[in-house]
């Protein structure tokens, strides 16, 4: 039985927002993307609601919307803005070094090219395999491996080059 659009939204809006937040590294952009996608999904819900996994279909729409986002802020990839993130949902107090390392890694992920970032999110957050990522991104499996390999190389290199203690300073001066 086809679920109603309203039921679908009630059930899926939070998972979609979570996925979009991780994908975009920007809660505001995530809200815009999810809004846009749900509005379009509603217009063709007869078709989307009847596929096997409507949530997977809509998730793919979110991915595509992000990758083809026409309203890129300042016409460039948006670097993660900790102030913006924390204004929406303040981070849980955690002053350990471990927390700083995760923040530092977030900064580096946010600077990755969009497709590489999407591939990384799908692999390490969604636990997709190469074929699933390829299907989601609409590219070959080899391309997926290439995206992930390059992303890992970048993240690993920046991690190696990073001076000790940089993590604790990353929030400063960012906007």
């Amino acid at each position: 039985m086809t679920p109603s659009f309203d039921d679908f939204v009630a059930e899926q809006v939070t998972p979609l927002l979570r996925y979009a937040t991780v994908l975009t590294c920007d809660p505001h952009l995530a809200q815009d993307v999810v809004q846009e996608v749900l509005l379009r999904a509603q217009q063709k819900w007869d078709r989307i609601g009847s596929v096997d996994l409507p949530h997977a279909y809509v998730k793919r729409m979110v991915t595509n919307e992000y990758l083809s986002w026409r309203r890129r802020r300042a016409a460039k990839d948006v670097a993660l803005c900790m102030t913006t993130l924390e204004s929406v949902t303040p981070p849980v107090a955690d002053k350990t070094h471990h927390y700083d390392e995760r923040e530092a890694m977030l900064q580096r992920i946010a600077k990755l090219p969009r497709k590489q970032r999407a591939a990384v999110v799908l692999r390490y957050y969604e636990n997709y395999d190469d074929s699933e990522i390829a299907q989601m991104l609409g590219c070959a499996e080899g391309t997926v491996r290439s995206h992930i390999s390059r992303a890992l190389a970048t993240l690993r290199m920046e991690h190696t080059l990073e001076p000790a203690g940089v993590g604790s300073r990353l929030g400063e001066g960012l906007s």
Binding site: T21, P27, R102, I109, Y125
Partner: peptide, 12 residues
């Protein structure tokens, strides 16, 4: 993985 998990906690 840990960094993305941290980001997910900040879902609006």
């Amino acid at each position: 993985k840990e960094a993305l998990g941290l980001l997910a906690e900040r879902t609006p």
